[in-house]
Protein backbone atom coordinates (compact mmCIF):
# COMPACT_ATOMS: atom_id res chain seq x y z
CA UNK A 1 0.00 0.00 0.00
CA UNK A 2 1.02 3.57 -0.57
CA UNK A 3 2.39 5.13 2.54
CA UNK A 4 0.94 8.18 4.18
CA UNK A 5 3.58 10.57 2.95
CA UNK A 6 4.10 9.32 -0.61
CA UNK A 7 3.43 11.78 -3.42
CA UNK A 8 0.61 10.47 -5.61
CA UNK A 9 0.80 13.42 -7.98
CA UNK A 10 4.02 15.24 -8.83
CA UNK A 11 3.99 18.18 -11.23
CA UNK A 12 7.53 19.27 -12.02
CA UNK A 13 8.29 22.59 -13.79
CA UNK A 14 5.12 22.31 -15.85
CA UNK A 15 4.39 24.79 -18.65
CA UNK A 16 1.45 25.01 -21.03
CA UNK A 17 1.24 27.32 -24.04
CA UNK A 18 -1.63 27.94 -26.43
CA UNK A 19 0.35 29.45 -29.28
CA UNK A 20 1.95 32.55 -27.80
CA UNK A 21 -0.39 32.51 -24.82
CA UNK A 22 1.36 31.03 -21.77
CA UNK A 23 -1.46 29.69 -19.62
CA UNK A 24 0.65 27.70 -17.15
CA UNK A 25 4.09 28.90 -16.12
CA UNK A 26 6.49 26.75 -14.13
CA UNK A 27 4.01 25.01 -11.84
CA UNK A 28 5.36 22.61 -9.20
CA UNK A 29 2.66 20.88 -7.24
CA UNK A 30 2.71 17.63 -5.31
CA UNK A 31 -0.29 15.86 -3.82
CA UNK A 32 0.31 13.36 -1.06
CA UNK A 33 -1.71 10.24 -0.34
CA UNK A 34 -5.01 11.03 1.47
CA UNK A 35 -4.38 14.72 1.02
CA UNK A 36 -7.17 17.15 0.07
CA UNK A 37 -5.77 19.99 -2.01
CA UNK A 38 -8.03 22.90 -2.99
CA UNK A 39 -7.03 25.17 -5.85
CA UNK A 40 -8.40 28.72 -5.67
CA UNK A 41 -7.83 31.88 -7.61
CA UNK A 42 -9.45 34.24 -10.13
CA UNK A 43 -10.99 33.01 -13.39
CA UNK A 44 -8.39 32.31 -16.03
CA UNK A 45 -5.68 31.72 -13.47
CA UNK A 46 -5.09 28.19 -14.82
CA UNK A 47 -6.63 26.14 -11.99
CA UNK A 48 -8.81 24.00 -14.24
CA UNK A 49 -6.02 23.55 -16.76
CA UNK A 50 -3.71 22.23 -14.05
CA UNK A 51 -6.44 19.87 -12.84
CA UNK A 52 -7.08 18.59 -16.37
CA UNK A 53 -3.37 18.02 -16.89
CA UNK A 54 -3.30 15.59 -13.99
CA UNK A 55 -5.35 13.02 -15.94
CA UNK A 56 -3.99 13.95 -19.34
CA UNK A 57 -7.05 15.76 -20.72
CA UNK A 58 -4.60 18.61 -21.37
CA UNK A 59 -1.08 17.96 -22.56
CA UNK A 60 1.96 19.75 -21.18
CA UNK A 61 4.17 21.96 -23.31
CA UNK A 62 7.14 21.44 -21.00
CA UNK A 63 7.79 19.67 -17.74
CA UNK A 64 6.74 16.38 -16.21
CA UNK A 65 3.67 15.05 -14.46
CA UNK A 66 4.10 11.85 -12.47
CA UNK A 67 1.21 9.79 -11.19
CA UNK A 68 2.43 7.28 -8.61
CA UNK A 69 5.84 7.72 -10.15
CA UNK A 70 4.77 7.13 -13.80
CA UNK A 71 5.42 10.05 -16.16
CA UNK A 72 2.20 10.47 -18.14
CA UNK A 73 3.87 12.61 -20.81
CA UNK A 74 5.93 9.58 -21.91
CA UNK A 75 4.45 7.79 -24.95
CA UNK A 76 4.95 4.28 -23.53
CA UNK A 77 2.79 5.06 -20.50
CA UNK A 78 -0.77 3.81 -21.02
CA UNK A 79 -2.83 6.87 -20.17
CA UNK A 80 -6.01 4.77 -20.08
CA UNK A 81 -4.67 2.64 -17.22
CA UNK A 82 -3.70 5.76 -15.30
CA UNK A 83 -7.10 7.36 -15.84
CA UNK A 84 -8.78 4.29 -14.37
CA UNK A 85 -7.19 5.28 -11.06
CA UNK A 86 -8.18 8.96 -11.30
CA UNK A 87 -11.84 9.88 -11.03
CA UNK A 88 -12.94 13.21 -12.46
CA UNK A 89 -16.04 15.29 -11.79
CA UNK A 90 -16.86 18.11 -14.21
CA UNK A 91 -18.57 21.43 -13.78
CA UNK A 92 -21.31 20.41 -16.22
CA UNK A 93 -21.62 16.81 -14.91
CA UNK A 94 -21.25 15.32 -18.44
CA UNK A 95 -23.54 12.39 -17.73
CA UNK A 96 -24.22 10.24 -20.79
CA UNK A 97 -27.74 11.37 -21.75
CA UNK A 98 -28.64 8.21 -23.70
CA UNK A 99 -28.14 5.94 -20.68
CA UNK A 100 -29.98 5.52 -17.40
CA UNK A 101 -28.31 6.56 -14.16
CA UNK A 102 -27.36 2.96 -13.44
CA UNK A 103 -25.98 2.44 -16.98
CA UNK A 104 -23.89 5.58 -16.57
CA UNK A 105 -22.34 4.19 -13.41
CA UNK A 106 -21.64 0.64 -14.63
CA UNK A 107 -20.42 1.55 -18.16
CA UNK A 108 -16.72 1.87 -17.40
CA UNK A 109 -16.37 -1.01 -14.89
CA UNK A 110 -18.15 -3.39 -17.30
CA UNK A 111 -16.42 -2.16 -20.47
CA UNK A 112 -12.99 -2.24 -18.86
CA UNK A 113 -13.73 -5.66 -17.37
CA UNK A 114 -13.30 -4.52 -13.79
CA UNK A 115 -16.43 -6.43 -12.86
CA UNK A 116 -19.12 -8.54 -14.49
CA UNK A 117 -22.44 -6.86 -15.02
CA UNK A 118 -24.16 -8.28 -11.93
CA UNK A 119 -21.32 -7.33 -9.59
CA UNK A 120 -21.00 -3.89 -11.17
CA UNK A 121 -24.74 -3.32 -10.81
CA UNK A 122 -24.75 -4.32 -7.14
CA UNK A 123 -21.79 -2.06 -6.53
CA UNK A 124 -23.33 0.79 -8.49
CA UNK A 125 -26.43 0.62 -6.28
CA UNK A 126 -24.16 0.89 -3.26
CA UNK A 127 -22.48 4.01 -4.67
CA UNK A 128 -25.85 5.50 -5.57
CA UNK A 129 -26.86 4.93 -1.97
CA UNK A 130 -23.72 6.73 -0.81
CA UNK A 131 -24.73 9.78 -2.85
CA UNK A 132 -28.36 9.40 -1.74
CA UNK A 133 -29.93 8.51 -5.10
CA UNK A 134 -30.89 4.84 -4.81
CA UNK A 135 -34.38 5.50 -6.14
CA UNK A 136 -33.07 7.20 -9.30
CA UNK A 137 -31.16 4.19 -10.66
CA UNK A 138 -33.47 3.73 -13.64
CA UNK A 139 -34.08 7.42 -14.36
CA UNK A 140 -32.64 9.19 -17.38
CA UNK A 141 -30.15 11.97 -16.56
CA UNK A 142 -32.33 14.65 -18.17
CA UNK A 143 -35.07 14.01 -15.58
CA UNK A 144 -32.73 14.80 -12.66
CA UNK A 145 -31.90 18.15 -11.09
CA UNK A 146 -28.39 19.55 -11.46
CA UNK A 147 -27.44 18.54 -7.96
CA UNK A 148 -28.70 15.02 -8.50
CA UNK A 149 -26.84 14.76 -11.80
CA UNK A 150 -23.61 15.87 -10.14
CA UNK A 151 -24.02 13.27 -7.42
CA UNK A 152 -24.54 10.59 -10.09
CA UNK A 153 -21.36 11.84 -11.77
CA UNK A 154 -19.51 11.35 -8.48
CA UNK A 155 -20.94 7.82 -8.13
CA UNK A 156 -19.87 7.12 -11.72
CA UNK A 157 -16.30 8.17 -10.95
CA UNK A 158 -16.25 6.18 -7.69
CA UNK A 159 -17.38 3.03 -9.51
CA UNK A 160 -13.86 2.68 -10.94
CA UNK A 161 -12.44 2.62 -7.39
CA UNK A 162 -10.12 5.53 -8.03
CA UNK A 163 -7.16 6.40 -5.82
CA UNK A 164 -7.45 10.08 -6.66
CA UNK A 165 -10.51 12.24 -7.33
CA UNK A 166 -10.39 15.46 -9.33
CA UNK A 167 -13.22 18.00 -8.97
CA UNK A 168 -13.43 20.80 -11.53
CA UNK A 169 -15.74 23.45 -10.06
CA UNK A 170 -18.32 20.79 -9.17
CA UNK A 171 -20.88 23.22 -7.75
CA UNK A 172 -20.48 26.21 -10.08
CA UNK A 173 -23.31 25.20 -12.40
CA UNK A 174 -25.76 24.38 -9.60
CA UNK A 175 -28.65 26.29 -8.13
CA UNK A 176 -27.68 27.45 -4.60
CA UNK A 177 -30.03 25.03 -2.84
CA UNK A 178 -28.39 22.08 -4.64
CA UNK A 179 -24.85 22.94 -3.60
CA UNK A 180 -25.12 21.56 -0.07
CA UNK A 181 -25.91 17.97 -1.11
CA UNK A 182 -22.94 17.79 -3.43
CA UNK A 183 -20.55 19.29 -0.89
CA UNK A 184 -21.84 16.84 1.70
CA UNK A 185 -20.89 13.90 -0.56
CA UNK A 186 -17.44 15.39 -1.12
CA UNK A 187 -17.02 15.99 2.62
CA UNK A 188 -17.73 12.30 3.27
CA UNK A 189 -15.15 11.28 0.70
CA UNK A 190 -12.55 13.52 2.30
CA UNK A 191 -13.32 12.04 5.71
CA UNK A 192 -12.87 8.52 4.28
CA UNK A 193 -9.35 9.51 3.29
CA UNK A 194 -9.76 9.94 -0.49
CA UNK A 195 -6.91 11.83 -2.14
CA UNK A 196 -8.64 14.82 -3.74
CA UNK A 197 -7.76 17.82 -5.86
CA UNK A 198 -10.58 20.35 -5.98
CA UNK A 199 -11.03 23.52 -7.97
CA UNK A 200 -13.78 25.54 -6.32
CA UNK A 201 -15.08 28.96 -5.43
CA UNK A 202 -16.75 27.64 -2.25
CA UNK A 203 -14.35 29.22 0.24
CA UNK A 204 -16.18 28.01 3.33
CA UNK A 205 -15.98 24.45 2.07
CA UNK A 206 -12.30 24.85 1.17
CA UNK A 207 -11.55 26.12 4.65
CA UNK A 208 -13.36 23.18 6.19
CA UNK A 209 -12.05 20.19 4.20
CA UNK A 210 -8.72 21.25 2.70
CA UNK A 211 -5.42 20.02 4.06
CA UNK A 212 -3.74 22.52 1.81
CA UNK A 213 -4.99 25.52 -0.18
CA UNK A 214 -3.14 26.62 -3.31
CA UNK A 215 -3.66 30.12 -4.68
CA UNK A 216 -3.22 30.49 -8.45
CA UNK A 217 -2.83 33.71 -10.37
CA UNK A 218 -1.72 34.30 -13.95
CA UNK A 219 -0.85 30.65 -14.56
CA UNK A 220 1.42 30.42 -11.54
CA UNK A 221 1.17 29.28 -7.93
CA UNK A 222 1.37 32.50 -5.93
CA UNK A 223 1.23 30.95 -2.49
CA UNK A 224 0.07 27.84 -0.69
CA UNK A 225 -0.45 26.62 2.84
CA UNK A 226 -2.97 25.40 5.38
CA UNK A 227 -6.47 26.92 5.20
CA UNK A 228 -5.63 29.05 8.24
CA UNK A 229 -2.45 30.33 6.63
CA UNK A 230 -4.12 31.26 3.37
CA UNK A 231 -7.52 32.49 4.55
CA UNK A 232 -6.51 34.16 7.81
CA UNK A 233 -2.94 35.27 7.15
CA UNK A 234 -2.37 35.57 3.42
CA UNK A 235 1.14 36.80 2.64
CA UNK A 236 0.58 38.03 -0.90
CA UNK A 237 -1.33 41.16 -1.70
CA UNK A 238 -3.03 39.46 -4.70
CA UNK A 239 -4.29 36.72 -2.40
CA UNK A 240 -5.66 39.24 0.05
CA UNK A 241 -7.51 41.25 -2.56
CA UNK A 242 -8.92 38.07 -4.16
CA UNK A 243 -10.19 36.80 -0.81
CA UNK A 244 -11.66 40.17 0.05
CA UNK A 245 -13.64 40.16 -3.17
CA UNK A 246 -14.98 36.61 -2.92
CA UNK A 247 -15.68 36.64 0.78
CA UNK A 248 -17.60 39.91 0.55
CA UNK A 249 -19.81 38.60 -2.19
Amino acid sequence: MTEENTDRVQMQDVYKDYGTNHVIKDVNLNVKNNEVVVLIGPSGAGKSTVLRMINGLETTTKGHILIDGADISQPHVDINRIREKIGMVFQHFNLFPHMTVLENVILAPVELKKADKATATAEARKFLETVGLTEKADAMPASLSGGQQQRVAIARALAMHPDIMLFDEPTSALDPEMVGDVLQVMRQLAQQGMTMVIVTHEMGFAKEVADRVVFFDGGQILEQGTPTEIFDHPKEERTQSFLNKVLQA
Partner: peptide
Protein backbone atom coordinates in the same frame (compact mmCIF):
# COMPACT_ATOMS: atom_id res chain seq x y z
CA UNK B 1 -17.56 17.05 -22.39
CA UNK B 2 -18.99 13.65 -23.32
CA UNK B 3 -15.70 12.46 -24.79
CA UNK B 4 -13.77 13.95 -21.85
CA UNK B 5 -16.01 12.24 -19.31
CA UNK B 6 -15.69 8.90 -21.10
CA UNK B 7 -11.91 9.19 -21.45
CA UNK B 8 -11.50 10.32 -17.84
CA UNK B 9 -13.11 7.05 -16.76
CA UNK B 10 -10.32 5.23 -18.56
CA UNK B 11 -12.25 4.23 -21.69
Amino acid sequence: GQMEAARSLGL
